[in-house]
Every structure is written in structure tokens, then in C-alpha cells.
């Protein structure tokens, strides 16, 4: 009996430890334009990140950023600066902050905050209370951006 409770307690602890590794949008600490720690506690996957960057229903970063690495995609927007060589200009922690909540880095920007789940008005019902990207997708995008070096 005692032993069973003990095991259950351990299982519960492990589960909460695993959950604690993914930081919820409201718990993100963004200080001085930087988020140091991975939102998932794990490094992201740059191959997945490249897909998220192009996908119109996910990052759709290509709507606003020209990216030579995605030259197979026909349409690249020009609302924001070209993303080429972005890893030479910013650290991983800075890129994580830009993708998570660009508004905390560039005041008044048109670029959406990809990892917030509140603070916006009149969302369509399907999107209410949700962030555009998941923590995993943010990490994948950051890992991908870190591969974009020119120097």
C-alpha cells in the first residue's frame, strides 16, 4: 500500500517535471530583448523550422521576409527586412525573443507576436486564447534561423 502511493507520487513528480519544461506563453521571461532558455527545454529542429517559416497557416514568415534559402517558394514578401544572414546579426536568445513577441523588441511593429495567447482583441473564435505557433514550433524556427549565416 505504502509502496504504491510512493510510486504514484514519483510518477506525478516526473510528469510535472516534464510539463514544467515547456514554458506557457504567459510565463515567458523576456528581458532586454532576450529569452535565454529554450521554451521546450530542448533544442529545436531546423528542418521543421524551415517548413514552419514557409507554411502560410503557421509562421508564414515568407509573407513579409525575403529568404534566399527558400528560393523554391515563388512569393516572398518585403514588408520586413530580408532574413538572409540573420544569425550573424542576432543571438539565439534574441531571435527567440523576436519570434516569441516581436513587439517587445521592435516597438509598434507590424510583425505578429507568435507566442502569446492573450492581449489581442476580437480574435476569430478558433484562435481565441491560442498562440500562433507552439513552443516547439518557435524553437524549430529559432534553430532554423540560426542556420542562416552569411559570414
Amino acid at each position: 500500500m505504502k509502496r504504491a502511493i510512493g510510486l504514484a507520487a514519483i510518477a506525478a513528480m516526473t510528469a510535472s517535471a516534464a510539463l514544467a519544461e515547456t514554458v506557457a506563453p504567459t510565463n515567458v521571461t523576456l528581458a532586454d530583448g532576450v529569452i535565454e532558455v529554450s521554451l521546450t527545454g530542448q533544442p529545436g529542429d531546423p528542418v521543421e523550422g524551415r517548413k514552419v517559416f514557409a507554411n502560410r497557416k503557421q509562421g508564414n514568415c515568407l509573407a513579409c521576409h525575403i529568404n534566399s534559402d527558400l528560393s523554391e517558394e515563388i512569393f516572398h514578401g518585403e514588408v520586413g527586412p530580408p532574413i538572409d544572414g540573420v544569425a550573424d546579426r542576432w543571438s539565439a536568445g534574441e531571435l527567440r525573443a523576436i519570434v516569441t513577441n516581436s513587439k517587445m523588441v521592435f516597438e509598434g511593429t507590424i510583425m505578429p507576436a507568435f507566442y502569446i495567447d492573450s492581449g489581442y482583441e476580437r480574435p476569430l473564435e478558433d484562435f481565441a486564447g491560442k498562440s500562433i505557433l507552439s513552443a516547439q514550433q518557435v524553437e524549430d524556427v529559432v534553430a532554423y534561423l540560426m542556420t542562416l549565416k552569411e559570414e
Binding site: 502560410r56 508564414n60 515568407l62 509573407a63 513579409c64 512569393f75 516572398h76 514578401g77 518585403e78 514588408v79 507590424i110 505578429p112 507576436a113 492581449g119 489581442y120 482583441e121 476580437r122 480574435p123 476569430l124 484562435f127 481565441a128 491560442k130 500562433i132
Partner: peptide, 21 residues
């Protein structure tokens, strides 16, 4: 407004003339 948190002005006043995708 919206999950993307933009105003009409963000696209049609500040960025007219450029490509958005």
C-alpha cells in the same frame, strides 16, 4: 485586431507599395 494583432493602417498606410507574399 485579431490574433495577428494588426490594424488596417499597418498594411494599407505603412506598407502600401510592397509585396506581402
Amino acid at each position: 485586431v485579431g490574433q495577428l494583432d494588426m490594424a488596417c493602417s499597418n498594411c494599407h498606410e505603412n506598407n502600401y507599395g510592397v509585396m506581402i507574399r
